[in-house]
């Protein structure tokens, strides 16, 4: 029986969107924590750490996200870690996010004038306190537009989970397309749902950038 792409089918696609949003959020939080470490390592005074972080960023920015997901998905079992597909995907997306966020935040940390950190040192503050109380809060503000912009990329990146068989937004679309034979309508709908999720973030990022530029 061939179904038409009607209301129940649209609901099914929206069910998939729930996964898309959950995965994006999870990957952003975990990737953000890792990314902060990468950014700190990349800007630290210890040379091996800096080199390691630079290589780490280079690898995640120089290979396709799809391959990163495949490697995590096929690689984790080799390490003796048996995980569910969705966990493997979130792990892969998180690593990907940590590379990109690490690079964005490195730039923001370096954009904070050196004098800030030097003044902290002159006052006798340790590294942890200088970073936490002086540098990072300023870097955070500088990094906001790019960070929110990256959230859009990460959300779009979750679409690749469909190729591993996880039923998120894109995969729901594939399934509905297969039973309704109306790919045009289905993928247009899927695209619009992504658009509805991403556009507010894009606008927010542009707004933040304008505000940052205005403040100079």
């Amino acid at each position: 029986m061939i179904r038409t792409f009607g209301f129940p089918e649209i609901l099914f696609v929206l069910e998939g969107a729930k996964w898309t949003i959950l995965m994006s959020l999870a990957a952003f939080v975990v990737g953000g924590l890792l990314g902060l470490l990468v950014a700190l390592a990349r800007t630290s005074g210890i040379r091996p750490l800096r080199i390691f972080a630079a290589g780490y960023i280079q690898i995640f920015q120089g290979t396709p996200l799809l391959i990163q997901l495949f490697l995590v998905y096929f690689g984790l079992p080799l390490l003796g870690v048996k995980v569910e597909l969705w966990l493997a995907v979130i792990a892969g997306l998180s690593l990907h996010a940590s590379g990109f966020l690490g690079e964005i935040w490195r730039g923001s940390i370096q954009a904070v004038p050196d004098g800030q950190s030097e003044a902290g040192r002159a006052l006798g503050l340790g590294y942890a306190s200088r970073m936490r109380d002086i540098v990072l809060p300023q870097a955070f503000r500088i990094s906001l537009p790019a960070t929110v912009g990256f959230m859009v990329n990460l959300t779009k990146g979750t679409a690749l989970a469909a190729l591993l068989g996880l039923t998120e937004l894109t995969r729901s679309g594939q399934l509905m397309s297969n039973i309704t034979f109306e790919p045009l309508k289905v993928y247009a709908t899927v695209g619009l749902v992504y658009f509805a999720i991403c556009l507010p973030l894009t606008l927010c990022s542009a707004q933040l950038e304008r505000r940052l530029n205005a403040q100079g």
Binding site: V152, K156, G157, A159, L160, A162, L163, T170, G173, Q174, S177, E182, P183, L184, V186, Y187, A188, V190, G191, Y194, F195, C198, L199, T202
Partner: peptide, 21 residues
């Protein structure tokens, strides 16, 4: 904005599977 706020993969599917319609 339409292109930048939708995944490339969905665009590929839309063109390859949808456009024949």
């Amino acid at each position: 904005e339409l292109i930048r706020n939708t995944p490339f993969l969905v665009q590929v599917f839309f063109i390859y599977f949808g456009m024949p319609e």
